[in-house]
Design a protein around this nucleic acid. Structure first.
Length: 312
DNA sequence: CGCATTTGACCAGCGC
DNA sequence: GCGCTGGTCAAATGCG
């Protein structure tokens, strides 16, 4: 595929979605900021606390944030500093970076649909371009044959503008695209990502009425880096958590434990946008008592597994 | 057969 | 207003 050559050069496959998550700002505005070169002055919206972000608890006491050594996944001004740092880190192939969970490979617990290296598909914009146009015509023809004209078709009622759920992202070094995080996901879409040969996949939690969605995409500069963006809050317990509880935590979240066995590598971005690789282990255990975490879903699983791992 | 994935189209937002 | 892009839908297909 020659799409790579046609790519505009970017120091880093920056995705506004990710920075939106990091900044707590709506993607659109962050995208703007990104296009303007991460002007920190332009980004002043306070972001939510980490726990608020994850659990929706307004009564956050900030302990988690302190434990992480930063106010959230990224401070507001990190869209400027951290965002740039993020790019540099990614470009350098640095293992430590803002809440990146560096694992050499994700040992999915059996149910992981392993997609080794999403191929450099034909994707890109050309797929949606001429080819897409042809397909559209084809589909139009098909509809006409079926007597199904769009003009006659009773269109679905327009969806009212949805409010964006808080999002956060995990940047993981992994060989598989879809990381098994204990929840069950149904893939509902895939899109070519601009400037990247790797498509972005869209997943929805399969639990009825659970609004959580996630997007998974790879960095084109470092295909081993997977960016998983979560949106929303689980309205249920992780099936895996239930299972783990059933087993009295004899082997709590085995797959997660495996994946996070390299947590010492895990770094956090501080308020200054610096990497604070030591923030996790020392502070987390004191701040992240299980009682502080109601059903936070994914991250609870992750953190609890981490805590169990660090506090045998 | 039921559920998950694939895939092309549609729709809305945004920038120009 | 137009084109581009991200996000979603839903029919077709695959798989256990």
């Amino acid at each position: 595929m020659s799409g790579d050559q046609e790519r505009e050069h970017h120091p880093f496959p920056y995705h506004e979605e990710l920075s939106a998550v990091f900044s707590g700002k709506p993607a659109g505005s962050v995208a703007e900021a990104g296009q303007r070169g991460f002007d920190p002055q332009a980004v002043s919206t306070p972001f939510e606390s980490f726990t608020e972000l994850l659990c929706g608890t307004p009564t956050d006491d900030g302990s988690l944030a302190r434990a992480f050594g930063f106010s959230c996944l990224a401070p507001a001004d990190a869209v400027g500093s951290g965002g740039a740092a993020l790019r540099e880190l990614m470009a350098d192939g640095n293992d430590n970076f803002s809440c990146s969970l560096t694992s050499t490979s994700w040992c999915g617990g059996g149910t992981t649909p392993v997609t080794p290296n999403s191929s450099a598909s034909s994707s890109s914009t050309e797929a949606a371009g001429e080819e897409g146009g042809a397909r559209r015509k084809k589909d139009q023809l098909k509809r006409e044959e079926d007597g199904d004209d769009m003009s006659n078709k009773v269109k679905k009622p327009k969806k009212e503008r949805r409010q964006r759920e808080p999002r956060f992202a995990f940047v993981t070094r992994s060989e598989v695209d879809h990381l098994d995080d204990g929840y069950r996901w149904r893939k509902y879409g895939q899109k070519a990502v601009k400037n990247s040969p790797y498509p972005r996949s869209y997943y929805r939690c399969t639990t009825p009425k659970c609004p959580v969605k996630k997007r998974v995409e790879r960095s084109y500069e470092d295909p081993t880096i997977v960016v998983t963006t979560y949106e929303g809050k689980h309205t249920h317990q992780s099936p895996h958590t239930v299972r783990a509880n059933t087993h009295q935590l004899a082997h709590p979240l085995p797959m997660m434990s495996t994946s996070f066995s390299q947590l010492p590598q895990l770094g956090c971005t501080t308020q200054q946008g610096n990497i604070n690789p030591n923030a996790f282990p020392s502070n987390l255990s004191s701040a992240l008592q299980p009682s502080r975490f109601p059903d936070c879903g994914l991250l609870q699983d992750i953190l609890s597994s981490f805590l169990h791992g660090s506090q045998p």
